[in-house]
């Protein structure tokens, strides 16, 4: 979801306040980046520069962390986040075929966002509901015991 200039300005102020409050705790970088990721939906260059400046560390450190952990993203995500579980339990029960179908339907691959900004497919290792394998989630909704043929109808709901 694209943020408006006002929203960005407000969120930036909030981020600065959050950093100010947390910068003296031991190991503040990750919690601050997690806050920023949650707030903006991604970590832009501007956001990373603010964090680097206020913590007094090179921005390469922030960027290194941002690109190391799967949770952080450098680009805004789509309106709907699809996670097709690729954990072992789902894999042995055909999770890969489900993912392939989703990718085919949307014309994007994992960790990409559709051109219209509607969907992002996210790499996921084990959503923790192995009893429902193979599983995918779209936002908060869980779809279990999937086959590739069910994918199209599910996507149509969004």
């Amino acid at each position: 979801m694209a943020l408006t200039t006002e929203q960005i300005a407000k969120k930036t102020e909030e981020l600065k306040a959050f950093i100010e409050e947390h910068k003296n705790m031991p190991g503040p970088l990750m919690p601050i980046m997690q806050y920023a990721q949650e707030s903006f939906g991604y970590l832009s260059l501007e956001t990373q520069l603010i964090i680097s400046d206020m913590l007094g560390i090179p921005v390469t450190e922030v960027y290194g962390v941002a690109t190391f952990y799967a949770q952080f993203s450098l680009q805004p995500k789509g309106d709907n986040i699809i996670s097709v579980c690729q954990g072992t339990a789902c894999y042995v029960k055909g999770g890969a075929a489900v993912l392939a179908e989703v990718e085919k339907e949307l014309g994007i691959t994992s960790n990409q966002t559709t051109q219209d900004g509607k969907f992002t497919i996210q790499d996921t290792r084990c959503l923790g509901c192995c009893g429902l394998a193979p599983v995918m989630t779209i936002n908060e909704d869980v779809y279990g015991k999937l086959t590739p043929s069910k994918v199209k109808d599910i996507l149509a709901k969004y």
Binding site: Q86, G87, T88, Y91, R125, C126, G128, C130
Partner: peptide, 10 residues
């Protein structure tokens, strides 16, 4: 717990 397919700790 990172093993994809393990959820004991969780």
């Amino acid at each position: 717990e990172g093993d994809p397919g393990a959820f004991m700790d969780r």
